[in-house]
């Protein structure tokens, strides 16, 4: 897919608009997996974490009527990936979001709130900073 000059350059993708571009993440993560040596099973988990973080940006970061843009840059090395997601939407720190109570029963269990929870469950570290008018989320997975 992306014609990077070599494997040490970051792998980039930009998703614009709404969630219709979400399926593009599948090929993107496959490329990341081949560069880093992630097995297919772990690649599915990383795909999931990334999709949840990006969906959050595309659906909620921008005021209605404004075009949503999610920039993704990933660095792969053997046994590790670092993914940096940035957007120019309203400041929001997902690392401070409420965590899901997974012990609740069917009736009490809220319908939503699992997206960010999954990001934090899957990735080894999730760091947020707001800089130059951008939300910057750095997610790392070692394997």
């Amino acid at each position: 897919m992306n014609s990077a000059k070599n494997d040490t350059s970051p792998l980039k993708i930009t998703l614009r608009g709404d969630i219709r571009q979400i399926p593009r993440l599948e090929d993107y993560v496959a490329e990341l997996a081949s560069r880093s040596g992630m097995d297919p099973s772990l690649a599915l988990s990383v795909n999931l974490a990334l999709e949840e973080a990006v969906t959050n940006v595309l659906l909620y970061a921008y005021p209605k009527g404004q075009d949503a843009v999610a920039d993704i840059e990933a660095f792969a090395s053997k046994g590790s990936v670092r993914i940096i997601l940035s957007d120019s939407g309203v400041p929001f720190d997902p690392t401070k979001a409420d965590t899901a109570d997974t012990s609740l029963g069917v009736e009490e269990r809220p319908i939503g709130g699992l997206g960010i929870f999954l990001v934090r469950q899957i990735m080894d570290s999730v760091e947020y900073r707001y800089e130059g008018g951008k939300n910057i989320l750095t997610m790392t997975k070692n394997f």
Binding site: L44, L48, E52, T55, V106, E107, R109, I111, G112, L114
Partner: peptide
């Protein structure tokens, strides 16, 4: 089914709640 995200889980849970 190859993959599920939280949006898919939401559909499952909504149906589960209706069944309850």
């Amino acid at each position: 089914l190859e993959y599920i995200s939280s949006s898919g889980l939401r559909l499952f849970l909504t149906l589960r709640k209706a069944a309850a």
